[in-house]
Simulated assay, not measured.
Amino acid sequence: MLPKSRPRGAPALLAALTALLQAAGVTVLVALTTMTALVAVVAVAAPAGADTTWSVVPADANGPDGRTVIDIELPAGQQVTEHIAVVNRSTQPVDFAIDANDGYLTSKGYFDMRPPEATPVDGGSWIKVPDKVTIAAGATTVVPITVTIPQNATPGDHPAGVTASVDAISGQVRVHNRVGVRLNIRVNGTFAAKVTVNDVHTAYTWSWNPFTPGTVEVTYTLANTGNVRLAPDSRILTSTIAGENGWDDTSEAKAREIMPGGSRTFTAHVTGTWPLGPIGTTIMAIPSPAGKPLPGVTAERVAIDTTVWAIPWPQLTLLLLLVIAVLTLRLTSIRRRRRIEKLIILNSRGTPLGT
């Protein structure tokens, strides 16, 4: 089953506004650009009745070759020819525009590509592709892409992508749909896997149950200051007089990369930490290179220490309630004893009760 793209968010809002303008007798044509995440196989259907669906995958000269991305590693000044396969799954011929541009990661760590109107300035500018291809209904066309590394290219990773796209009209909204393949371009040379930890913020959350420890929330930013893609491992340690607690990122998000010059913000929750005054917190990051191993490259661990104070309010409240309860019981016991003593004295004197 191939997913179909529909205008959502801003396109839907613009469509609603356009309808209102049309009701007033005003003709409006709005151009929008939509972008799908670049993965190995993605299919998009244009809005309205065109029902255009297609996919783009890495290929060799004969057709799709089973790869999910195209990895290229060359020294500066070298050239290589790769291929993508564009599969027209529609019931009519389609003209596809072919575009190459720089790649980047979204705030959540997903790969994307700069819009076609943006001029590439890095790896995308090294790629030569045909402007467009016309593909018959149900047919597959292999498109050659030539990557030429400049002589002055800096060593390291230069992400890029190649897309096949079509324009479609949905009402009065023009939507640009594109599907593409990611290119991991790596220029040979001296590689550096480095990361810094910035913008560290810690906070403590108490448990409503005084017999249950609370949670330390740590928000921090990892910045890739090297020249290769990183998939860093992170570990958070908290320390109190009651002992240490640790947190390891076991989520899928930890495998998402950070591009050279890029950064990502993470949030960790260290549970099982008792609020016993100052809580020492250590954030450790290991800048593990993403993709192919890099022999001889040492990824140095980075550690940042910080402290957050946590006063044991639930435990102090419980202690206060216990003290009040004990004092209340004691006062009640004293009053009861005095009442009994008074009754005994009155009874021994023969004084009627209530006198």
Rank of each mutant, 00 (worst) to 15 (best):
A136F: 00
G124F: 07
Q151T: 14
A100S: 15
V121G: 02
I127D: 06
D131K: 14
P116G: 03
V173W: 02
D99R: 12
V142Q: 01
P144S: 10
G123Y: 02
I145C: 02
P116W: 01
D99I: 08
I98A: 02
T141E: 14
G161C: 09
I135F: 04
P150W: 11
T106E: 10
V147H: 08
G124M: 08
K132S: 14
T140H: 06
A100R: 08
P150A: 13
I145R: 05
T141M: 07
P150L: 11
G109T: 10
Q172A: 14
A137P: 09
P120I: 09
N152E: 11
F111G: 03
G124D: 12
F111V: 03
I149L: 13
V162D: 00
A118Q: 14
G171D: 07
V173M: 11
V121I: 08
K128R: 15
R114A: 12
A153H: 12
G171H: 03
I169E: 12
N101G: 15
T141P: 00
D131V: 09
P130N: 10
T163M: 03
V142E: 02
D102P: 07
V133W: 03
S165L: 06
G161E: 06
T141I: 01
T154L: 14
P150G: 08
G103S: 08
M113R: 06
K108V: 10
E117F: 15
G103M: 10
V147G: 03
T141V: 11
Y104T: 03
T119C: 08
K128Q: 15
F111P: 02
V129Q: 09
D99E: 15
V173L: 14
A139V: 02
R174T: 04
G171K: 00
T140F: 06
I145G: 02
D102L: 03
A137F: 09
T146P: 04
V166A: 01
E117R: 14
V142T: 06
P155M: 02
T154G: 06
S170E: 13
A164G: 05
G103R: 07
I169S: 09
F111C: 01
T163C: 04
D122T: 08
Y104S: 10
P159Q: 05
W126H: 11
H158K: 06
V175A: 12
S125H: 00
D157Q: 01
E117P: 06
V129L: 10
P116H: 14
